[in-house]
Design a protein around this nucleic acid. Structure first.
Lengths: 166, 166
DNA sequence: CTGATATAGTACGATTACGTACTGTTCATT
DNA sequence: AATGAACAGTACGTAATCGTACTATATCAG
């Protein structure tokens, strides 16, 4: 009886990923529900688009809880949502338990590996060699090595983006 | 309106992670609902323990759909669940779309990065990130990625030699 | 100015998932 | 022989999420 994609506050109470994202996004910049929907769609490359029937009731319940305020702008029945101090506290408390981030990703990866099978071959060997290479490095070279790896990751990231933008 | 942790079959219909895991696990070895619960708890290190109120109704509905059979052993009201041919087909169809695995993990990582912030760049974590990066790459980019990794390894190797020659 | 599209939200039934309480069996320990 | 823990599942109310249909206002192209 422990849920997936639920994040704890440090003490007992948990919130779903969508609640957490909503609080975080509104913390960055107050916005409408519609903007939230568009934003999630955009950052996930369309892989996650919550239903309106999920988001709007959630926003209202967060407002009822006193974690966000609803400011009706009058225009186009637009409502701007903004976190309250209580909302900011809840967000901060969850962020403070940042081990959850890695835990959830690891859990998902573990299950995927079991279901979909293992990863790739040749690239994997290359990774292994790089790892060995790093192990032989003296501590005083670590900063330089980190720089090299950062550059490597950057290049790979660009390869990835290149693909997506097409 | 696209769900998180839902997996497609190739054509339209999607299933939740728990359905997928159940089909996969029963495919590996027929077992009881109780065993499934224990197994999930074990493989996730206790990070995910579905509720009985989720699992048992799910098993019954999979049986109603004809994807698994319920074999009542008589003993201790124990029921052994086994995938049918139809169930195996559904599982295979989802597994065939194995890009979903990477997609879902990437999506989760992206959101986490936004919410919890950047990961700290120790060498180990950097390696982990590079791994993730590689996993998201489409097959046709592998050669280029390999080239980048070779370059990376070469630089690291030079770092190493530089040290030794002194 | 007219129609299409994007914006913004409401309403509500259906489905999925959760949580707790409950029944009963088997097994090991005392 | 008694008891408690692990095993195995049922029952049911609550909560979260989905999906679709609906209303209504801006905005922009033709």
């Amino acid at each position: 009886m422990r849920s997936i994609l639920h994040y704890t506050n440090g003490e007992g109470h948990t919130r779903s990923l969508i609640s957490l994202y909503v609080l975080h996004s509104l913390h960055c910049k107050p916005k409408t529900g519609y903007d939230l929907l568009k934003e999630i769609e955009e950052v996930t490359g369309g892989a996650w688009v919550p239903s309106k029937g999920t988001l709007y009731p959630l926003l209202h319940s967060l407002a009822d809880e006193g974690l966000i305020t609803e400011e009706d702008t009058g225009v186009r029945s637009k409502i701007i949502y903004t976190p309250t101090d209580a909302g900011e506290e809840v967000l901060a408390a969850i962020k403070a338990c940042n081990h959850q981030s890695k835990e959830q990703v690891l859990l998902l990866k573990t299950l995927h590996t079991r279901i979909f099978g293992e990863e790739r071959a040749s690239l994997r060997e290359m990774m292994w060699e790089i790892r060995e290479c790093i192990h032989t490095l003296p501590t005083e070279k670590h900063e330089e090595a980190l720089e090299i790896l950062r550059g490597c990751k950057k290049s790979l990231g660009e390869l990835n983006n290149e693909e997506r933008s097409r």
